[in-house]
């Protein structure tokens, strides 16, 4: 069983808690142990590094050092956390800077040693291999048309994010295909959802979100799939507002990566938090013949035997 220091990010601990919930469910089935580390702080989301770059570097170095003390790699759910932690690793390649930061960290018996690696849930599932996922699917999502949406901070810039990020990513498509659904190809899949200016310039931000939603609507996607909790806020929570600015209605459910994988693995939709979305996900459930269209669903008790058999199979 692989162990990870779990870094869900501030969004998954507040307004997109369903991503956290779904990841824990999926990890349980895949035989991955997620250890909550109470010491972790916010990654700064690029805002703290604007106010005080060195402080941001020190805080992220501390986050990584805490994981290193426990001898674990870090697993994130949020693209921005992923970028910021990787960026910190890159900047601390400068040994003078690393020594200066470590000088402070040693006061708390911590040391950044560049040992832990930072992983995003998408990369973890990719490393496991879509084939393994395919063999574990309990509820094939046949016929579901899924539009993948990566989110910027998982893709760019390559010199910080390393070899996992490419200009033509295919990992999300492979995972969608492994669940039995149909991955769609469209131009906007690598675009920006506009989340980071949502509060500063709402109009522009929502126009950017509607640009991405337009893409998904054009190819008649049943749902958008994103590995990023922040893209989810922009595309799901603000979808109705984006529709106002774009002057056309949208109804595109947006799922977290862990939720789609969880559905395919046969986890109950309620446990994956599908009822928490602002854009209703009932259509999806009807489409895959889900025994559970959210509210009038059977009790979780029915699911338990399934769970156990899968867990045994996984190990």
């Amino acid at each position: 069983m692989k162990e990870f220091a779990y870094f869900p990010g501030c969004a998954a601990e507040a307004s997109t808690q369903e991503a956290d919930k779904a990841t824990q469910e999926v990890a349980g089935l895949l035989g991955i142990r997620l250890c909550r580390v109470e010491d972790f702080t916010c990654c700064g989301a690029g805002c703290l590094s604007e106010e005080n770059p060195k402080l941001n570097l020190a805080l992220n170095a501390r986050n990584i050092a805490v994981a290193e003390r426990e001898g674990k790699d870090i697993l994130t759910l949020c693209n921005t956390c992923f970028l910021n932690l990787r960026k910190c690793q890159m900047e601390l390649g400068d040994l003078n800077l690393r020594e200066e930061i470590n000088g402070e960290l040693r006061k708390f018996d911590l040391e950044y040693q560049a040992k832990a690696s930072i992983l995003h849930l998408l990369h973890l599932l990719g490393r496991m291999g879509p084939d393994k996922l395919k063999s574990m699917v309990k509820r094939p999502l046949d016929g579901l048309k899924v539009a993948p949406f990566y989110g910027c901070h998982l893709l760019r810039p390559q010199h910080i994010l390393g070899p996992e990020s490419t200009r033509e990513p295919i990992l999300l498509e492979e995972l969608i295909a492994a669940t039995g659904a149909i991955p769609l190809v469209y131009k906007e899949r690598l675009d920006c959802c506009g989340f980071h200016i949502l509060l500063v310039d709402e109009k522009t931000s929502l126009q950017m979100a509607s640009h991405c939603l337009d893409g998904a609507r054009r190819i008649k996607a049943d749902l958008l799939l994103t590995p990023c909790t922040l893209c989810h806020i922009s595309l799901d929570m603000y979808q109705a507002e984006a529709a106002k600015w774009a002057d056309r209605p949208y109804h595109i459910p947006v799922l977290h990566l862990a939720q789609l994988v969880g559905l395919a693995l046969g986890i109950h939709p309620r446990k994956l938090g599908l009822q928490n979305h602002l854009v209703s996900t009932k259509d999806i459930m009807n489409k895959i013949g889900g025994k559970a269209s959210a509210p009038s669903s059977p009790l979780p008790g029915n699911e338990n035997p399934d769970h156990e058999s899968i867990t045994v199979g996984a190990q």
Binding site: G46, C152, L155, R156, Q158, R167, C192, I197, V200
Partner: peptide, 15 residues
């Protein structure tokens, strides 16, 4: 100016 606060950090220009 408000110009500098409009960047959405999409990293496209960096690439």
């Amino acid at each position: 100016s408000d110009m500098i606060w409009l960047c959405a950090k999409c990293q496209s220009c960096i690439v």
